[in-house]
Design a protein around this nucleic acid. Structure first.
Lengths: 257, 257
DNA sequence: CGTCGCATTGACTCTATTCAATCCGGGTGG
DNA sequence: CCACCCGGATTGAATAGAGTCAATGCGACG
């Protein structure tokens, strides 16, 4: 198992300071950031945001590139500005468990941890906003709002993880896939009305398998079964259309016949 | 699946106010609490502690009794003063996944969540210190130390949960049991030197199975295999002695032959 | 001493894995 | 333009690891 240091190009200091001054937000690079209102940053005052922006760096990550490896010392936290990431852990012989996927607006990192307890890799070309560990932690210590926001992120992370434990420990392959598709749908519904019926699946079958605790073959077979049963329809560009949400929900909950 | 409201006797207002005044701690009921230095409470000043104690209640929970059910509105947080609890989630047909065990000193509850996302039940007769939700949250909002402590608890909860996902998604029965025994050992080592070789197992085989994503039979068979292989020895009163920690560690990590 | 609940063991089954072949779409180079 | 190639996805056949069903063992307790 190769666990090396991550190397990556830093887009660097080229944060735009040209954002328009609208009188309330003031001039700072985050003014033009479209995840600002959704991400952790929303817990910061304009002054704090400005301060933090002084130390932040944007990083472009290509698909397949690693942000950091499990065991690496934590040097920074990140906000996903665009793209998608997978988080995973490995066993000595290469068996892999994906512990989560991150999308636009999500926060990456575990507060106050010395070392990363998982690896993070881009599913597709992505943009991250990198926040230096020390700087960010100091700010979290100062700002009650940021601390509370981080707590709420961690808390929902725990709830999510417990749901996934239920899936991994007790659900059948079909139940796992159904749960996954519905989760993906609701994740993509964030921002829009509700959950989308046409979902884009940025991860490979192998990634889905490693997230669901199955093999590629089983995922593929189960997808086919859902397709045959007219629960879903495969679309171009890794799209999946949910045709019978009710039935999928019943399956996901373990209520199916 | 019966999911009712939890009912429980409240030991009530009989918190002892007789703790000795040693000049620094001052007179308050927590002075005599032996988990005070380990639990969340350690993040509070004496004044804060005193304030919180005014609203706290001790609850005695019998083995098998439920503290709260998944879906119940969160009305309080708890500190486990003594005993052991299991946290679990259920599927519609009764399949159960235990998502964690709590011991003396552990914190019970997910900060700022409206409803409980899991049920909590005592493994054996236990004592809890109940902290009213509103009171405690207000205090967390005020005190940076408490907020940070809660964040660190939630954060290590996430790391723990991810480790468990790896176990549930990718480990074999033997690897799961080995990981579990070592975890239990290190959990009981807290307070003592390091990890204990003689561990007490307060949960039934069924609980172990539901925690490890296995069946009772498989757990039992695997225990027998370990016993036969001289990796462990069963002791009286649900005790298990670890005889070959190195081999167990190798198995747990997935490095065994 | 008998009973009850949990744990263990045995025999058989089944779901998901493994191993292997084929398919499909996109990109490349002749 | 089209044949070729490559990686991911799908499908098939055989296998294995854990599950299921059922019987027995064992210790605590009345």
């Amino acid at each position: 198992m190769t666990v090396g240091k991550s190397t990556m190009k830093t887009v660097g200091d080229d944060i735009s300071w040209k954002a328009q001054n609208n009188g309330t937000i003031g001039i700072h690079p985050c003014a033009s950031c479209d995840v600002r209102t959704r991400a952790v940053c929303s817990a910061l005052s304009n002054d704090e945001l400005k301060e933090l922006a002084l130390h932040s760096r944007h990083r472009a990550i290509d698909a397949g590139e690693t942000v950091f490896f499990e065991g690496d010392p934590t040097e920074a936290y990140y906000v996903v500005m665009d793209g998608a990431l997978k988080l995973y852990k490995l066993l000595a012989d290469g068996r892999r468990q994906i512990t989560g996927f991150l999308f636009k607006g999500d926060f990456l990192g575990l507060a106050y941890c010395e070392d990363h307890s998982f690896s993070a890799e881009a599913l597709k070309d992505s943009k991250l906003c990198q926040l230096p560990k020390g700087q960010f932690e100091a700010m979290a210590d100062e700002s009650g709002a940021l601390g509370r926001r981080l707590l709420s992120i961690a808390t929902s992370g725990v709830a999510c993880a417990q749901e996934q434990m239920l899936l991994l420990g007790r659900k059948t392959a079909a139940e796992r896939l159904a749960s996954f598709l519905l989760w993906l749908s609701s994740a993509q519904g964030r921002g829009g009305d509700d959950s989308a019926d046409l979902i884009s699946v940025p991860m490979s079958r192998a990634d889905m398998a490693d997230y669901l605790g199955l093999t590629v073959e089983t995922v593929s077979r189960t997808v086919t079964k859902f397709k045959t049963g007219k629960l879903i329809r495969l679309q171009a560009q890794n799209g999946i259309e949910i045709c019978d949400r009710g039935e999928l929900e019943a399956i996901a909950a373990g209520e199916a016949a």
